[in-house]
Amino acid sequence: MRQALDGDVGAYKTLLGAVAPHLRGVVRPLLMRSGRGLADLEDIVQETLLAVHLKRATWDPSFPFLPWLNAVARYKAIDALRKSGFRVEVDIDTMSEALAAPDERRDSTLDSARILNALDAKQRKLVEQIIMVGRSSADVGAELGMSEGAVRVALHRSLKRLGKMFGKSRHAD
């Protein structure tokens, strides 16, 4: 995380790649104890990853990373359960002991088409080409006549839009 905060994209991907299975391990027992299925598991994991990303400045590098991460996961999981009408009491100690269980699906119920549909034309093109297809942001930006900064801002806005969608998709369920 320290390297990532210094702008090391590779380190950041590695970190998030390791954080995701940890989050599944934390969220899974919560969902099971609340007596509901695991259908929302990956949605909550993704929403938490997004929160980890957007709130990364609230981690103070002079404190250990794991308690911070678990607190974000706990807050997001409880928030998700509360929004869908469940009351949960969570003991953080049992949570952090949760093992990262074998992986099932790694897709959220929020499918890419729905995400793209919620974005405006430019954002949609950027997300589709850079994120879904995996082209470089410089190429796609040049194609659309957008500066590097403008691409960055548009991608950032679409992330925020995605954050709002997570909350709403659960409401609709």
């Binding site: 994209v9 990956e42 997004l50 957007l54 400045a57 897709d107 959220s108 890419s112 997300v127 994120i131």
Partner: peptide, 22 residues
């Protein structure tokens, strides 16, 4: 959406510095 894709998206956004609340 695949979680891998989301991680790519987040990594792409790393250069946008989040505000410091404190």
């Amino acid at each position: 959406m695949q979680t891998e894709k989301l991680i790519d998206w987040l990594a792409e956004d790393l250069a946008v510095k989040p505000p410091r609340a404190s």
